[in-house]
Simulated scan of single mutants.
Amino acid sequence: MRFDHLGATPRIHPDAVVATPAVVSGEVTIGAGCQVLHGAVITAEGGPITLGENVVVMENAVIRASAVNPVHIGSHVLVGPMASVSGAVVGDEVFLATGTRVFNGARVGDRTEVRINAVVHLRTVLPPESVVPIGWVAVGDPVQVLAPDRHEEIWAAQKDLDFLGYVFGLDRDTPDLMVQLTERYGAALARHRDDRPLD
Rank of each mutant, 00 (worst) to 15 (best):
R196F: 04
L37H: 13
G39D: 03
Q158Y: 15
Y185V: 14
D195K: 08
S75P: 00
C34F: 11
A147M: 08
G33K: 11
L51P: 02
D162C: 07
F163N: 12
T100G: 03
S66F: 00
V139P: 00
H13N: 12
S84Y: 13
L122H: 13
D92F: 03
R123Y: 00
S84A: 12
F3N: 01
V90H: 07
A22E: 00
L126R: 07
N69V: 02
P14K: 10
H13L: 08
G91V: 02
V167M: 06
G140W: 09
D92W: 10
E93H: 15
D160K: 14
E53C: 11
T182Q: 06
R11P: 01
D194G: 11
D110G: 04
I49Y: 02
G74S: 04
P14Y: 01
S86K: 11
R172F: 10
P128L: 05
G186E: 03
A156D: 12
F163M: 13
E53A: 15
V132I: 08
V56I: 14
L161K: 12
P175A: 07
V145I: 15
D160V: 11
V18T: 05
T43I: 12
E113Q: 07
L37G: 03
Y166S: 14
V114K: 11
V23A: 09
E59Q: 14
M58N: 07
V79Q: 07
V137N: 11
L122D: 02
T112M: 00
P10V: 09
A157F: 03
H5C: 09
V89G: 06
R101M: 12
R107D: 02
G135T: 07
L146S: 07
L122M: 12
P128K: 05
A156C: 03
V36I: 15
L96D: 05
G39L: 07
P21G: 11
L37W: 15
G52H: 09
G105T: 09
I73A: 05
I134V: 14
D176V: 00
G31H: 06
D15I: 10
H5F: 15
S130K: 10
G47H: 03
G74N: 07
M1S: 14
I42P: 05
A19L: 02
R184Q: 12
C34E: 06
A97L: 03
T112G: 04
V79K: 06
A19Q: 03
V36F: 09
A22P: 01
V36L: 10
W136H: 15
M1K: 12
I12E: 06
M178C: 01
V114G: 00
R11Q: 13
G87T: 01
L189G: 01
M1A: 14
P81M: 13
A157G: 04
K159A: 15
L161N: 00
V143N: 01
V79C: 04
V114N: 08
E152H: 14
E59V: 06
A19G: 09
P133C: 05
A106W: 06
V114A: 00
V90S: 07
D160C: 09
R184D: 08
V28R: 02
G99R: 00
V57L: 01
S130Y: 08
A106C: 04
P21S: 13
R150S: 11
D176F: 05
H121W: 10
